[in-house]
Write a protein that binds this DNA or RNA. Sequence first.
RNA 1: AACCUGGUGGUGUAAUUGGUAACACAUCUGGUUUUGGUCCAGACAUUUCAGGUUCAAGUCCUGGCCGGGUUGCCA
Length: 562
Amino acid sequence: MCPPETPTDFIRTIIQEDLASGKHQSIVTRFPPEPNGFLHVGHAKAICLDFGVAEEFGGRCHLRFDDTNPSKEEQLYADAIQEDIRWLGFDWGEHLYHASDYFEQLFEWACHLIREGHAYVDEQTAEEMRANRGDLNHPGVDSPYRNRPREESMDLFLRMRAGEFEDGAKVLRARIDMASPNLTMRDPAIYRIQHSPHPRTGDQWCIYPMYDFAHGQSDAIEKITHSLCTLEFENHRPLYDWFLEHLPVPAKPRQYEFSRLNLSYTITSKRKLKMLVDGGHVNGWDDPRMPTLCGMRRRGFTPQSIRALCREVGVTRTEGTVDFALLQSLLREELNETAERRMAVLNPVKVIVENWPQGKVEMVTAKNHPSDPLRGSREVPFGGELWIERDDFRIEAPRKFFRLKPGAEVRFKYAYYLTCTGYETDADGEVTEIRCTYDPESKGGNTEDGRKVKGTIHWVHAPSAAAAEMRLYDHLFREPNPEEGGDFLQNLNPDSLKVVSAWVEPDLAQWPAKKAVQMERLGYFCLDPDSSGEHLVFNRTVALRDSWAKLEKKIQQGSAGT
RNA sequence: AACCUGGUGGUGUAAUUGGUAACACAUCUGGUUUUGGUCCAGACAUUUCAGGUUCAAGUCCUGGCCGGGUUGCCA
């Protein structure tokens, strides 16, 4: 067990110093999603940081929706976002806010800028603005409207609000420096005309503030002390500070940037995720293969494992890609402790026990957890007709294959030792039935003579088994970097979802939703919402480590070479 | 090419602020095991390069090299 380590990183160091120096009595952070899509693992890192530091330092964290672009935002997303944050285990208490709560104040501040000569209404088209902005190597050119009288800008801005102009006809710009080497400082647009109803303010407004004009001021209004965001906003920090300096704001929050989370085999671009959904490459935003929090939840990932991932990767300014295997490892670490064991056969082949008394069914005792006796045990039916994994039997087995093969004796876990006496095949050579004899002296899975039986396999009693659909997942992309080659859609893994018909032990027929289970030797599973009393559906959250698969591959390569 | 920014094992982080590279994942070796799981033991880097300061440099200085971001009326 790992001790409860308190993470330390450059942001926490800054906060500690600010607290120690008395710059702040307590800290306030915020998580500011735009309600235009679903949250994904990348957001989880920001959420863990924003809410995490607030918790650690006894401050608070606000949930604030950055709802400044009504043409893209919907209440549906805002609701889903709240559900996802709560699921991760964080709580904003009373502190739910919206940038739209501040529209009136923001508007006043825009007027203030105009009055001070720090903003003007531009009438250039978007194309003209772009052309006159210059580029990386050339300074921009002043707009012909840049030096118009303040009164004129004020009049126009008021009329913009009054709805006199069409979308895009005019725009309010901050008057900063068209020659700034930082492109975001070249007279950025701060208000645009958009005649679309807002989910919260309805048709009250037809002009909306841009992100840059809303974010820092919202932070100031809420007295945010540390405004944490990802690296792509670094270039915006001078503008963030510029507004705070030129406006009569009640506080001077500071922005700090950290690098976003990248996971191998995963994309976390809202736009591209949407392409996967719209293109039918996945079955919706909560498809268990999606890196969305709702998808991961459905797949069976736990909030703890995602939080553990965020703790492990830390907070820095260096950009990199975290191995997806780390998340899986953390998940297994947790589930190994918490999940009870059950048995299921995914790719069944029949076993007939020749010397088993006709029609007899015997209950054997199986532990619910291998190392935790407190989890108890259950009685599982065993008999003369069983299902085992096709893969646990070989007619001709490679060296070191410890499972069933002609003449070999293996342990049927918790039941008996069985020895393979023969098998049947169909016209294609496919094994249709395996015949065995059992040793009556081996009940429970051991004998008094103490003889060694290396192989142990799982099984399900055929007559009492329940049918279940098992959905087995693999990476959505076959390349660690989905962008490899330039087009992520070309790298989709055609085998990312495999659906199989399985047999499961009777107990699984009433398995509770949301409860993780380890199917012995196969992996961790959970019930899918598609499941019904009639039709069981399980998702494999993550497979167990499989060192045999590696060994076998090596054996094959070795024999191929000789 | 301008501005901003980053560079420590395969990957992600750490290193008492100048004192001789630590942790996790991954990989590989062994051992235990009624899950080829778990668990246990071990292996794997001269810190982007070149100089310099110093008794001592991943940490400081100088100069290269390489990577990322920025030219929305998106956030």
